[in-house]
Amino acid sequence: MTATTDGRGKPDGILDRIQNFSDPKQEWRRLFSELYGTFLLVIVAAGGGMMSQAFPGVISRQAAVVAPGLMVLGVILFMGKVSGAHLNPAVSIAFALRGDFPWRRVPGYILVQLIGATLASLVLAAIIGVSSSYGSNYPATDYSAGAAFWMEALLTLGLVSVILGTASGAQNVGLFGAFGVGAYIALAGLWGSPISGTSMNPARTFGPDLVSGNFTDYWVYAAGPIVGAVVAVGAAFVLRGRGGGKSGSGAAQGALFTEVR
């Protein structure tokens, strides 16, 4: 995109370049958006378990699993147009597989999502004063890691299906898709959390595990969501064909510099 001028034939200054969201050099805005959004998600998602440990009986399981859904709803509404509000490596991979998001941007998104989750876990541990392992996810007692893996894959299949569906073609509902995604996360947590904790997000579990130094069965929370996301992309192809079209690319990439695939 060519630079604009100040009316005298001279290029605008640095302020214009900063405000020019169509400039691909503004990728740092997207990356900060993903870091900040994932930070907020993990503050709530991991914070529920850690606060329950610090204040027994105060926060119910229902409240702890519904809160992340409400946070995701809010994050999508306030910054979805900046980065697409993936907040989740499995979602970034799914959008790329779907052809709605450039693969070259995936590593940067995943890196800042992991950083955001880690920063949130550090802040929670410092404020609440309990191990961040209480805010992580582990297979339930008497259930195998394999059972938790399949639960995470199943739950993520539904999550990514909702995300891809509300961001694709005629089904695109813009920012109102936030309500569908937030509601699904809350619903999945209400029935699926007893077995696996309902992570559906490798970054959400990575942060607390890294800070606590306890990566017990972390593979479940890395592999399960990715497998579920890949299957969801296949289901989206069966339902709608290739890609999510212009609306799908816009939803996946935000409005800063959308590359229609």
Results as ranks from 00 to 15, higher is better:
Phe237Asn: 12
Phe176Ser: 11
Ala45Met: 13
Val75Cys: 05
Gly49Trp: 03
Arg105Met: 13
Tyr36Trp: 13
Val162Gln: 01
Phe257Leu: 15
Gly69Ala: 01
Ala183Arg: 03
Phe206Gln: 05
Ala64Cys: 09
Thr166Asn: 03
Leu77Glu: 10
Met51Phe: 13
Ala186Glu: 05
Ala90Gln: 03
Val238Ala: 14
Phe257Trp: 15
Val173Ile: 15
Tyr143Arg: 14
Val181Glu: 00
Leu119Ile: 13
Val75Arg: 00
Ala188Lys: 01
Ile93Arg: 04
Leu164Ala: 07
Ile76Cys: 01
Pro208Ser: 08
Leu155Thr: 05
Ile185Gly: 00
Ile163Phe: 01
Leu97Phe: 12
Ile14Phe: 14
Thr2Val: 14
Leu210Gly: 09
Leu119Cys: 07
Pro194Phe: 08
Leu97Lys: 05
Asn20Phe: 08
Ala236Glu: 10
Phe32Ala: 11
Pro24Met: 11
Tyr218Val: 12
Ala148Lys: 02
Gly37Ile: 01
Met71Pro: 07
Ala229Cys: 08
Gly169Lys: 13
Gly224Asn: 06
Val231Tyr: 09
Met71Asp: 13
Pro208Gln: 04
Ser121Thr: 06
Trp28His: 10
Leu73Ser: 02
Ala54Arg: 06
Asp23Glu: 12
Arg261Glu: 14
Ala186Pro: 03
Ser247Ile: 12
Ser136Asn: 06
Gly182Asp: 03
Phe21Cys: 13
Val220Arg: 05
Ala167Asn: 04
Gly48Ser: 05
Gly9Cys: 07
Pro202Trp: 02
Ala186Ser: 14
Ser161Asn: 08
Thr216Leu: 14
Phe149Val: 02
Ala54Pro: 04
Met200Pro: 02
Gly57Met: 15
Phe39Val: 09
Ala235Thr: 11
Arg204Asn: 09
Gly169Leu: 15
Leu35Tyr: 06
Lys246Trp: 12
Ala125Asn: 13
Ala222His: 08
Gly197Thr: 06
Trp103Arg: 09
Asn201Ser: 07
Leu190Phe: 07
Val181Arg: 00
Val44Trp: 02
Ala186Arg: 09
Thr141Asn: 12
Gly99Trp: 00
Ser196Asp: 02
Ala125Leu: 09
Gly250Gln: 12
Leu40His: 05
Thr198Asp: 03
Gly192Tyr: 02
Ala117Asp: 04
Phe257Val: 15
Gly84Pro: 06
Ala255Ile: 11
Ala85Arg: 10
Gly165Tyr: 01
Val123Ser: 13
Gly80Asn: 06
Val72Cys: 00
Ile76Arg: 00
